[in-house]
């Protein structure tokens, strides 16, 4: 049981899917870069190219977004978080369930360049895709923890993280859920960000994004994994995720039917979080 055996099964499956015309493309991971060790996203369109699909502890990028707008049915070599992202995109009508063939890769957790588990992966308790059409098991055993309970929500910490941010929007671009054609940050009318990319704009962006991901985040950690500036803004989103889980019992992408809490209106919603001590907060 190893990455190698999973990789072998994955290639065989994808070669036959492409050869038999079941799918037009497969989104997965390519051979590791000699410079960084990262397995970059690979879109294989031929059985020959499927031989290059790779599976290892550096298949870090979040790849569900590559399926949006693809023409024809596509398969995805999905980590559990990718599978959750696909399921969530289906409930949000960005993908048709019948157009995606989810290959659930049992996941030992991904690592950074030094071999240490990525933070999101260390927190993640989901080894197997909750939604899939085929599954490739046999991932090595690894010790995995749970979410940190205590977080520092002080304005000082927020400010410290914001000072590092360079507003490159890599985190937004990497996130499966940030598929808006025009992000609120890019809108002119009304303009949400101060026209000048200062610390206020950074705060607006990260708080705005946290709100938009409330109960939609699949906790893949893509936003923090891609950030070259070492910013941790995911703790804001995590807080929103925990809130939705506790108040509404909803976790994004656990099935491909239940619409997300953010897309659900209930007239008897207690609207906890909007109200404090009986008053509008």
């Amino acid at each position: 049981m190893s990455f190698e055996s999973q990789e072998k099964s994955l290639r065989e499956l994808c070669e036959s899917l492409l050869r038999d015309g079941k799918v037009k493309s497969v989104a997965g991971f390519g051979p590791q870069s000699p410079d960084t060790g990262l397995s970059p996203p690979l879109i294989a369109k031929t059985a020959g190219n499927a031989k290059r699909l790779s599976w290892n502890s550096r298949c870090v990028p979040s790849i569900a977004r590559y399926l949006i707008g693809r023409d024809g049915p596509a398969a995805i070599a999905a980590k559990p978080c990718d599978a959750r992202a696909v399921a969530s995109l289906v409930t949000e009508r960005q993908l048709e369930r019948k157009d995606v063939f989810i290959i659930g890769m049992e996941c030992a957790g991904m690592t950074d360049g030094s071999g240490a588990p990525l933070r999101a992966c260390a927190e993640c308790g989901t080894r197997r895709a909750p939604v899939c059409d085929a599954e490739i098991t046999g991932a090595p055993e690894t010790a995995r923890g749970t979410r940190d309970a205590a977080e520092d929500f002080s304005p000082e910490r927020f400010r410290r993280e914001m000072d590092k941010c360079i507003l490159c929007f890599s985190c937004r671009q990497a996130c499966y859920g940030c598929y808006c054609e025009t992000c609120f940050m890019d809108r002119g009318v009304p303009s949400w960000q101060s026209a000048r990319p200062d610390v206020g704009a950074k705060m607006t962006y990260h708080l705005g994004r946290a709100m938009h991901l409330a109960g939609r985040c699949v906790e893949c950690g893509a936003c923090e994994n891609v950030c070259a500036s070492g910013v941790d803004a995911r703790y804001l989103i995590r807080a929103a995720t925990v809130f939705v889980e506790e108040e509404y019992g909803f976790r994004a992408g656990m099935d491909a039917q239940t619409p997300s809490a953010l897309l659900t209106f209930k007239s008897d919603d207690p609207e906890t979080g909007f109200w404090k001590d009986g008053k509008h907060d």
Binding site: P41, P61, R65, Y66, S170, R172, Q173, V226
Partner: peptide, 22 residues
């Protein structure tokens, strides 16, 4: 094909020099 269209490569590059006025 894999490019996510973020601006990371520009912002960290020592020679990228494009700007706009606001």
């Amino acid at each position: 094909a894999a490019c996510q269209g973020c601006g990371m490569c520009t912002y960290i590059c020592p020679t990228c020099h494009c700007f706009e006025f606001r």
